[in-house]
Design a protein around this nucleic acid. Sequence first.
DNA 1: ACTATTTCCTGGATGC
DNA 2: TGCATCCAGGAAATAG
Length: 290
Amino acid sequence: MPELPEVETIARGLDRRVRGDVIESVWLGSKPEPLKSPAQEIVATLESRRINGVRRMGKHIVLDLEEVVGQAGVARRAKKSVRRRAGATSTKAQWIVHLGMTGRLLVCPPSEETAKHTHAVVKLASGRELRFVDPRRFGRLSVASNGDFEASGSEPLEVNLENFVDLFRGRKTPIKSALLNQKLLRGVGNIYADESLFRAGVRPRRRAASLTRENLSLLHSSLREVLKEAIKLGGSSVSDYVDADGEEGFFQLRHRVYGREGEPCLVCKTPIKRVVIAGRSSHYCPKCQK
DNA sequence: ACTATTTCCTGGATGC
DNA sequence: TGCATCCAGGAAATAG
């Protein structure tokens, strides 16, 4: 389940592998569910574009695209001119991928067998293919043909303490739910919400507005720590997460509460509790977290 | 303006 | 072995 550290790892890996490559053609699966933008617009925005870079915004992967210049590009543009006009794309555009729960972006040779649940195949000038595979179909593909994609919320690793504190002011919702709310903070999911709350000593059910300044200060730094540490370890591999190179992350070995229901707290040996908050399982130590 | 709940989707785990 | 049931979860939709 890719959250900020996993998406960051994947985006970095993709950047290394496909930056500078040119998209030659795009195949989209017949089922429209994984598409957030119209299929025709996606194709028109991607084809004949160079990938200038790949980066993360919240849980989104953003591929910055640019019109190809030079002979090959001109010829290709001429060929696609009809569709290109319909798409009305600018020279700078973006391809935005949200991996949902089980989405993956694979870079592979065309000879590689097409995995089940492959919803998009992008052919690159280097001869490789970039494939979007997503069994559970929670992932989404979209484009910003003018390059103006903006994700909601603050970046957890960039927001300062003052702004962080402001996010929770007056909110009656449990702090756990607030951390998961992408309109407040973008990129925090279930694992890192639980882990940061444990490190901050705050119970997930506490009303956000009830947290003291000290609580919030601790939560702010705990969240930063936990995210940075996870990025360093390549994310958490639970279920079948792997990065762009097919490598697993190792942060799952550092989880202190997530997925440890009934196991002893690593600090005080009290069994870790699991409760459901806003439909999400939430793990905490009843002794260490108040 | 918020907050809470439901829905989408499939594969793996569990139970009888 | 086979079949039904449950569960995981991000975010949009819906309800309150």
